[in-house]
Amino acid sequence: MEAADSKTVIRVRNLVKKFGSFVANDNLNFDVEKGEIFGFLGANGAGKTTAIKILCGLQKPTSGEIRVAGYDIYDQADQVKKNIGYMSQRFSLYEDLTVGENFQFYGGIYGLKAPVIRQRTTQLLDELGLTHIKNKILKEIPLGWKQKLAFSVALIHNPRIVFLDEPTGGVDPLTRRQFWEMIYSAAQKGITVFVTTHYMDEAEYCSRVSIMVDGRIEALDSPSGLKKHYRAESMNEVFVKLARSGKNSR
């Protein structure tokens, strides 16, 4: 167990995060493997966003041992950041820049060279089938497209892991489906996807799912394994059974 095999890309041991007396993450332990789509579920306030921010180096944990992409998040934060992409809950592209300019800026601050940025922009827009809107200002573009673009921007530097914090919030079902096709295609290329969601149908698409209740991980298994264990028809049922036990969710 100690000698983490190369397949493990995220390794979390005894992660604790406290805000004053409030415990947001209560002793989390889990591993995520390369190429996995790891679903991170939980009711509002269960501590998902806190955990994801710690893994991305946006917040400091109170204690715990955490390695992301093989690097220690305390000592090798820059190495971690080079190898991860992040798409936050809040929409984070610049509304007053064009699509191309957003790609250029984020590629630029990741330290990519100009030809690489151009090549990646063309490639990513091509995959999305959105090449024709490259010169459009972002605020003129529908939300669903923007979400897909934000995901692409998070991939511009070819990260090994991409963290998606509720990427499909407020998006129509068709776009949601297309978004998951993007997630699948990323996973097929060997990119590990760490995703939080409130949609239980999306949980069914994940390789493995963890369910957080009141800052703790109450369950962690493949969707079929969880359904079997909780004798449930769907992930929805599993989630409701678990979430009801939480004090924050009642």
């Binding site: 946006l58 080079k82 984070s92 592209l93 601050i109």
Partner: peptide, 17 residues
């Protein structure tokens, strides 16, 4: 306020840069 600073903070950019 816009939340774009998070997207910048998640990159390996240096403070001084």
């Amino acid at each position: 306020e816009l939340g774009t600073i998070e997207q910048i903070n998640v990159t390996p950019i240096k403070k001084y840069q």
